[in-house]
């Protein structure tokens, strides 16, 4: 894998992680968290861990994000932090 690409994804990972934790709208946070999962899934695919990447794509970016959104929908969207 091209290491520059690797580093860019890693930097984006940190950025999305921070954003998903700082955004006050929980729905947006869940979305950004989905992005985070997708990015890390790319990273793993790049590192040769295709099965892990596949699982993360389905579980992390898929199910996790969906159940987060489902909970946010059933509770409140705004948060104090």
């Amino acid at each position: 894998m091209i290491w520059q690409f690797d580093i860019i994804i890693l930097i984006f990972l940190v950025i999305t992680a921070v954003i998903s934790l700082r955004v006050k709208d929980l729905l947006a946070a869940s979305m950004v968290f989905g992005t985070y999962s997708f990015l890390i899934c790319l990273l793993w695919a790049g590192m040769g861990a295709v099965d892990v990447a596949f699982t993360e794509a389905t579980v992390g970016a898929g199910i996790s994000a969906v159940i987060l959104i489902a909970t946010v929908y059933n509770t409140r969207r705004d948060s104090s932090d």
């Binding site: 992680a17 998903s20 934790l21 929980l26 946070a29 869940s30 968290f33 985070y36 999962s37 890390i40 990273l43 793993w44 590192m47 861990a49 892990v52 993360e56 992390g60 996790s64 987060l68 909970t71 946010v72 509770t75 948060s79 104090s80 932090d81």
Partner: peptide, 24 residues
């Protein structure tokens, strides 16, 4: 974090980071 959902997002990030560590 004060918001429980945020705590859980943090938890997920923590866990994926550990996975990243292993895969690396």
């Amino acid at each position: 974090k004060n918001n429980l959902i945020k705590k859980l997002i943090g938890m997920s990030i923590f866990q994926t980071a550990i996975i990243l560590f292993y895969v690396s």
